[in-house]
Design a protein around this nucleic acid. Structure first.
Lengths: 98, 98
DNA sequence: CGATTCCGTAAGAATTAACTTACGGTAAGT
DNA sequence: ACTTACCGTAAGTTAATTCTTACGGAATCG
């Protein structure tokens, strides 16, 4: 969840939504160096949001279904809670008598 | 979305899920100074995730339904996209003939 | 083999972000 | 009117992130 705090990492994840990519291909689409992308990928990997797989010379990165799913679970709780809160807020907004 | 990058801000938002609170009450629940909380609230406010309303001496902060909803919309697109990507990945994993 | 491509990691510089203290302004209480 | 409570903002410091450059290892190609 902290892993998505950085805009570049969010962009990487969104790019990976379209399918796995090797590091080089990924790096071409960003205005920074390849090692910078590698470091971001390491963070995403620690957060279990991506998985990597060597393929000959290159190393493909892809989204990790399990990680994305657990993130979704977190937000699901969040929305549910939020909706309840809004319902209460609406009730509270109804002035008791004043 | 950047606004949720910080753990303290996530904690604030989660705390506000239970209802509106004045800054002082909010700050009591965190190990840092009140101004620090004020600054986090400013960021959350710029992100349209919270709204504030003065009530006599105190200033109440509450979740902003519109902001939370737009965040939800973002993630909905995300999950949808992700599921499609996983479906494709499963297909790709099915070896063509080898 | 030697040269090239692809990549991860380390080290350091530079930018950004998060906190504390200090201050001022408004509202309520005496 | 004075004092106290509540809060936002500014300035400055400290800590954490994010980059770049430099290097080395593994796979591919000639």
């Amino acid at each position: 969840m902290d892993a998505l705090g950085d805009p570049t990492r969010r962009a990487i994840v969104e790019r990976l939504l379209e399918g796995p990519l090797p590091v080089g291909e990924l790096a071409k689409q960003f205005p920074m160096s390849r090692p910078a992308i590698s470091q971001h990928l390491r963070i995403l990997k620690r957060a279990d949001l991506v998985i990597d797989r060597p393929e000959g010379n290159r190393r493909y990165y892809a989204l990790n279904p399990a990680g994305v799913e657990s993130l979704r679970a977190y937000f699901d709780r969040f929305w549910t809670h939020a909706l309840q809160a809004f319902a209460r807020a609406v009730d509270a907004a109804r002035p008791p008598s004043a």
